[in-house]
Design a protein around this nucleic acid. Structure first.
Lengths: 173, 173
DNA sequence: CGATATTATTTTAAGTATAAAATAAATTCC
DNA sequence: GGAATTTATTTTATACTTAAAATAATATCG
């Protein structure tokens, strides 16, 4: 019903949508707008302040949370990107000396990727700053807003998982 | 095994986050997860059913909403991608015959991009199916959930705009 | 008018991303 | 044990994406 008007012109994808479009579609477009907006801010700030990229930071963050390292497949699943993508990304980070590969003893197909001391150090320098950017961008939301949003997004996540459009859907031989 | 099996362990980025992390960060990661999840579903479905890509579909959708066509800059702003990106994307769609360029009379630097009849036809075939995918993915949310989520994301969007990290921030000559 | 700045777009170089095929190692199942 | 399958990863080809530099046209201002 009563819709909050934006203060800025904001000529983006979802603002251009007609107001009587389907709610689901408008919601998806707004979600995408928010995601892109934050992502681009973080990307730009990472470049300016640390001369690095979001995928690299993301990979380091995954490894920081997994002190024993991760396999390529685990990284691929957590970062939600293709496995081939991880190969190249990891290669670049190995070259930069921030990450190392350790061949697995139990399975000669796979290797564990983990932070080098330099990688740990670099990540530790970036993460509090990164966190402050995110805090700042969300400063307009109350604690309660954030909790509610978090909860609703949890519901959405579950819904998407359950109603996925792709591949192994519907058919089960 | 029961039909009501849980939809996979979900070993993604934000599930791996510790539960006592900052709320802002968890919110951002969950937002990103939702966005990626939907995006990847749509991308895969577009390829399977229409042999096209999300950026192409997105560009066609922008043009469909703007019957008089758009300039490269307008497309860039609405799609939230770099201007150089639009150049290549539009080139490919022109080659496919879905889009045409008309040099602007008033400004020899710019051209208007618009749908060809073939482009309009292709888009009209895709959009209801696309909408049904989105509806389906959000089927787990009630009408009220969606309205609330939409409203909270509006607040978030505004907050990010107001507290942007990048470029012309803080300094103002 | 003419210098300077701004705006619209393209080009360039490098990085990121995907899907699909290829490779190779482990697992399963006669 | 060995064939067939599955799993982990890399390679390939192509598309997408960005930032920054280049180009070119328009606008501004003294």
């Amino acid at each position: 019903m009563s819709e909050l008007r934006q203060p800025a012109p904001a000529n983006d994808r979802e603002t251009a949508t007609h107001r009587d479009d389907k709610l689901e579609l408008r919601l998806w477009l707004r979600l995408l707008t928010c995601s892109n907006l934050i992502e681009q801010n973080v990307r730009g700030a990472l470049r300016l302040q640390f001369d690095t990229t979001l995928p690299r930071f993301d990979l380091l963050a995954q490894l920081d949370r997994a002190p024993d390292g991760l396999t390529m497949s685990e990284l691929s699943a957590r970062m939600m990107v293709s496995n081939g993508n991880i190969t190249g990304l990891a290669d670049r980070l190995v070259e930069e000396g921030l990450v190392k590969r350790t061949p697995s003893q139990r399975d000669r197909r796979s290797s564990h990727i983990s932070l080098t001391p330099a990688g740990k150090k670099a990540f530790d320098a970036m993460t509090p700053v990164h966190e402050s950017w995110v805090d700042r961008m969300m400063a307009g939301l109350s604690r309660q807003d954030m909790q509610q949003l978090f909860q609703l997004l949890g519901k959405l996540k579950q819904s998407v998982h359950q109603n996925a459009v792709d591949a192994d859907q519907g058919e089960k031989k």
